[in-house]
Design a protein around this nucleic acid. Structure first.
Lengths: 336, 336
DNA sequence: TGACTCCGTGCTCATATGAGCAGAAAAGGC
DNA sequence: GCCTTTTCTGCTCATATGAGCACGGAGTCA
């Protein structure tokens, strides 16, 4: 064939149509006609003066060269491919990844993840008889996004302390109640501060019959749902007054990346400050690690590090997160 | 083997309380499996517990509700749908719209539009014997992006003055030469300043045999290619010293949105300052308007207003632009 | 030069998909 | 409640698409 200037042929409107000797460019033109104009491959062939098989091959090549991007734009869409990669990479039993596209701010993103978690929770089989939960903004969002009647007869139990001292008073309790109510179940609160000042106090409060009962119930829950906080001055534990901003700074200095059920962990998922940990009321991380079903909801730009610590140290069996975090987890920026 | 969580509708009690219509959510799940995981509709049906026909319908609905977005990511891709809309809306004989996606800066975008213009020029049939061109950064880019041998024997002629006073010396001339060289043709320069100080000088230079010859050649060109400038201090006419910054401010005050072949127009495409216009050497806008083929290359955030003036006042028969400008042209923000 | 491989092409054939239709189910009117 | 109207569902059938094969031309090596 001549390597002629590449142009000849006309489309339906009598416009000159290019026939380019460059296969890549041709595949783009074909893709435009096929996808944008939704013509049939045969029609595309007619316009570009190609056989329909050639068109098919061009489209295939355009696809695997990555020129064709198909995006599902919907707040409740998910990224199945990322989910599978996460599952494989971190040996999770499930992963939920919500898309970032179209979110405006961190709240938006958290809401999407919460929705994803709510959907997942509702689809969980067998339906948990008892669900252990932590508290925080994310968990609150999950509770809000759960549909009324998402399950029947699920009892909810708090797995870490924090009642009442919280500035956003009642939030922790409200979260538990709402999740339980929507599943026509009971909520059981853990009537204890999150962190006590002295180890002895912690031990004695744990020995209290009521608290011990709740902790026991928590230990035997059939599934857990929790989020993770970033180690920073805006942490819920600081806002609630359990820790001071400088306490957290010190924890960060010692390697803390965030907290899970009130306990600060480093990048390896290890407790940063054992003595602080000993003053913290609630399920231990080891207990959480041995759970059959533990769902972590961790989304947002700032939470990449905690998310990594959580999944790499086996703290959860199910991760609910956003696209950005998932990508970060899968493409680690190798540390020194 | 992990059991896929049941997304299929609950047979037991279909809750209509859901904010999002159940079918909508289903169609998203279906789309994920179909597009992201590329399963067959039948397989999707099996997973979601639906017949393949239902799946087909869900996908169709997802498509026309706009949840499925197919994007062709390639610098040389085009937006055919926008092109057609532009053609219809402004009675153009052709429109080329290059995608914005993935461009980093204005230069990038201009380069894409230039490439589009180059491609279009090469595809133009009949091949113009004589091509009238203006000059400027955009035109220079077009010249660069033209392929060697884009045509054979095309003579190029400048349609407005500007030789040599330009700071970027020789650019105007170089543009003409390059376009001509790549088509194995001759370039003819218009040996005159763009704007003269006195009308009399302008008249006498136009009367000069050489200049008159070039102008005559320009008037009889078979096609024209030009860009448009924004009315502002960074205008090429200011940079070249033909106008001062305050001259332009005054023009803007009087309604100028930009310049075309050295002549300032308002939003309606009318000459803003007739006396200035009378001192400007080159094709008149009316002459340009009566051309059979005049290709305007106007791209970039700042050029929306000029672009609008150009297309609404019939200055071009073909518009080469970017997606953003095209959208702006099609979705006018109605002025008071 | 001739035999050889390699790659791109156009094909056949199996499969996936969309259009259109008839019956079922649901919604609405009386 | 009963009947009409509308929507929804599962189907048949036509069409669009992808897999795989056989051919042929271009390049390669002896």
């Amino acid at each position: 064939m001549s390597r002629t200037p590449a142009y000849a042929g006309r489309d339906g409107e009598g416009r000159a149509v290019e026939i380019i000797d460059n296969d890549e460019l041709l595949s783009i033109r074909a893709a435009e006609l096929y996808y944008d104009e939704n013509k049939t491959q045969d029609e595309v062939g007619a316009i570009l003066k190609l056989t329909r098989w050639k068109v098919g091959r061009l489209l295939a090549s355009a696809k695997d060269k990555g020129f064709i991007r198909i995006e599902i734009v919907h707040p409740r869409a998910r990224r199945l491919t990322l989910e599978r990669s996460l599952k494989e990479r971190f040996a999770l039993s499930d992963a939920i990844v919500v898309p970032t596209a179209g979110t405006h701010d961190a709240d938006d993103l958290r809401a999407r993840a919460a929705q994803g978690a709510a959907d997942y929770l509702a689809s969980l089989r067998p339906v948990p008889r008892t669900l252990g939960i932590s508290w925080g903004r994310t968990l609150h969002d999950v509770a809000e996004h759960l549909a009324d009647g998402w399950a029947t007869g699920v009892n909810v139990v708090q797995i870490n302390g924090g009642v009442s001292v919280n500035q956003r008073a009642g939030t922790a309790a409200a979260t538990a109640f709402e999740i339980a109510r929507k599943a026509s179940g009971q909520a059981t609160l853990l009537p204890s501060p999150a962190i006590l000042e002295r180890r002895e106090t912690k031990l004695s409060i744990e020995a209290d019959r009521t608290v011990a009962g709740v902790l026991n119930m928590a230990a035997n829950a059939s599934a857990y749902l929790y989020s993770a906080g970033v180690a920073g001055a805006d942490s819920a534990l600081v806002e609630s007054g359990y820790l001071t901003s400088s306490d957290v700074d010190e924890l960060v200095r010692r390697g803390a990346v965030g907290d899970v059920v009130g306990r600060y962990i480093d990048a390896a998922g290890m407790i940063v400050d054992p003595s602080l940990n000993d003053r913290t009321v609630g399920m231990s991380l080891d207990a959480l690690r041995s759970a059959t079903t533990s769902i972590a909801v961790i989304a947002g730009e700032g939470k990449h590090a905690v998310a990594r610590a959580v999944v790499t140290s086996g703290l959860c069996t199910v991760l609910v997160t956003d696209e950005g975090t998932a990508l970060d987890l899968l493409n680690p920026v190798f540390p020194a």
